[in-house]
Write a protein that binds this DNA or RNA. Sequence first.
DNA 1: TAGCTGACTTAATCTACCTTAAGTCAGCGT
DNA 2: ACGCTGACTTAAGGTAGATTAAGTCAGCTA
Lengths: 166, 166
Amino acid sequence: MTSSLIGLLADRDSWRSERCSAARALEVLGTPANLLVLREAFYGTTYFQDFVRETPLSEPAMAKRLRELVDVGLLTRVPYQEAGQRTRHRYELTPPGEELMVAFFALMEWGDRHAAPDGGPVRLRHRDCGAQVHPRLSCTEGHILPPGEVEVVAAPTLLSTVAADD
Amino acid sequence: MTSSLIGLLADRDSWRSERCSAARALEVLGTPANLLVLREAFYGTTYFQDFVRETPLSEPAMAKRLRELVDVGLLTRVPYQEAGQRTRHRYELTPPGEELMVAFFALMEWGDRHAAPDGGPVRLRHRDCGAQVHPRLSCTEGHILPPGEVEVVAAPTLLSTVAADD
DNA sequence: TAGCTGACTTAATCTACCTTAAGTCAGCGT
DNA sequence: ACGCTGACTTAAGGTAGATTAAGTCAGCTA
């Protein structure tokens, strides 16, 4: 078994989809297209036309996605003005948006490993030390662990029913 | 700026969506529903009915998702037989499927932080030391770093054009 | 003040994936 | 051999999000 479910299996009902944090994250991300747009943002894209150019999305779709991502607080519109041009807006990651990078980079690494023969077209580098960066599972004791060593346990502080711990 | 794009910006075209590993991963994941199903698998679910019960998906949709996930190699059908029952199949994560855990858990942690008031209903624990586990960006020098310290660089070994490295 | 341009919006249409409601089918127990 | 049951499949219909093709609109340039 890959990850063990520790704790009250009965409690399982208390964290079905409605309560699953990842499910909520997925609601926010909404559609795969939103992740495509975020990818662009992670790569540093901020201009509308660049978003359109770098993704397979059409203008109307992109406008919609960007608006949605701004609405949920992953991007912000920031005004800018180029010489001789009128004021326009760029789209920048908010801190919550930036925090999705870990998940995104994990996805990317997975894609590199399983869909790209040569390891993929981009690398992640630690700005401060230059070493390569990877998303990993890390425990508070400082261990880096493989997925197989993770146990999924019910959170200890559920208001109601936590009597039958092991 | 959140993450800097180092290397040839011109090379940017060489790793647009078609080549982006994460985009490929997204293709495989396909629909948000697939991630829901995988979530269940990560939590330890293996039986068809359990998948149906624990997610908002209907039977036909679940059958379709499971088949697709088996087809792309994230799950395998393994036969089993309960006493007095005919042979049926469970759905187990394959190693590639298991490797998606890092991405999934990162999504979950993000959801915990931004959508769950109390930190979410489940915790991750290191089987061997009991400490809490978090998805993190880790560099090969052993640093755990925030997303802001990551630089996205073009991969060094693209067959063709890599002259202008820094 | 008229025109240009980038950033959208609107409209019509298509498709993918969902739903519910019925089948279908394999094979164990009787 | 017959029926039951869990695991699907089929069918009909809905909705969300995509596409292309045209607008619209703000505001700097001329």
